[in-house]
């Protein structure tokens, strides 16, 4: 009985909260999203410029603009008035917002850890030691194409796994119709990386391999998490 009362209290509180949030004028929470997205994008631009002071400026600006746009969308979905309650199997706009935000930030991590992926100039020595052994191994196996495939597989797989762990409650027995949307959001989150690759003629040639690796990873993770169905929770 205590559990039922707690559920009722949580639900009523969440819905009452949503009704209160709706009383705030729309422009206020949109402004909040804009300000936070801009501040974050500013920090990211500073960070990227610090890592690659010699990088071509328009590449950094393009990546940051893309990230800013994605963060703006994600934060708008997050701050939109709605019940703030995590329920297994329920996808609200703030769940989509969190998913997109997570994927965008992990894209940034991909660019920071492996600039070859985005055809940016070499990392400073203290950071390149992280990726050099792995890059060399893949290059020895099958050249640039295989390297890009494994890059997509590893980074997108890690990203997908991490994000799904964050929204696993919503994934549990979620309707199948949401999986295409989840997949689209994950690809959208990867768009800064894809954009940077398309901007470089050499990287563009190997983009299909990176996409194949990413798709393989995303579909594998999606398939694994689809198994967390209603029957499994019984």
């Amino acid at each position: 009985m205590g559990d039922l009362n707690r559920t009722n209290d949580q639900l009523m509180s969440a819905i009452r909260g949503a009704l209160e949030e709706e009383k705030v004028p729309q422009w206020k929470w949109k402004l909040k999203s804009f300000v936070i997205a801009s501040l974050l994008a500013g920090c990211i631009l500073t960070f990227l410029h610090w890592i690659w002071p010699d990088a071509v400026t328009h590449q950094i600006l393009t990546a940051t603009s893309c990230v800013w746009l994605l963060l703006l969308i994600a934060l708008s979905l997050y701050f939109k008035p709605q019940p703030r309650l995590e329920v297994r199997g329920f996808w609200s706009t703030w769940t989509w917002g969190r998913l997109l935000m997570g994927m965008t930030l992990i894209s940034l991590l991909q660019i920071a850890v492996c600039p070859d992926l985005a055809a940016l100039s070499n990392l400073p020595n203290y950071l390149s030691s992280l990726t050099e052994p792995m890059t060399q191994t893949f290059m020895n196996w099958g050249g640039m194409s295989l390297c890009m495939f494994f890059c997509g597989l590893i980074f997108s797989g890690l990203a997908a796994g991490l994000v799904f762990l964050t929204v696993r409650e919503a994934i549990a027995y979620a309707p199948k119709k949401y999986f295409l949307g989840i997949f689209a959001v994950m690809l959208l989150g990867q768009s800064p990386v894809i954009l940077l690759q398309t901007m470089d003629a050499h990287a563009r040639l190997h983009l299909p391999y990176w996409l194949m690796g990413s798709l393989t990873a995303l579909l594998t993770i999606l398939f694994l998490f689809r198994q967390m169905r209603f029957e499994k929770t019984n």
């Binding site: 309650l85 329920f90 019984n234």
Partner: peptide, 16 residues
């Protein structure tokens, strides 16, 4: 036959 958790989840989803 479903666990109480499942009933509660669907109850909450319906209200949302």
């Amino acid at each position: 036959g479903a666990r109480q958790n499942a009933v509660e989840d669907l109850f909450q989803i319906t209200w949302l």
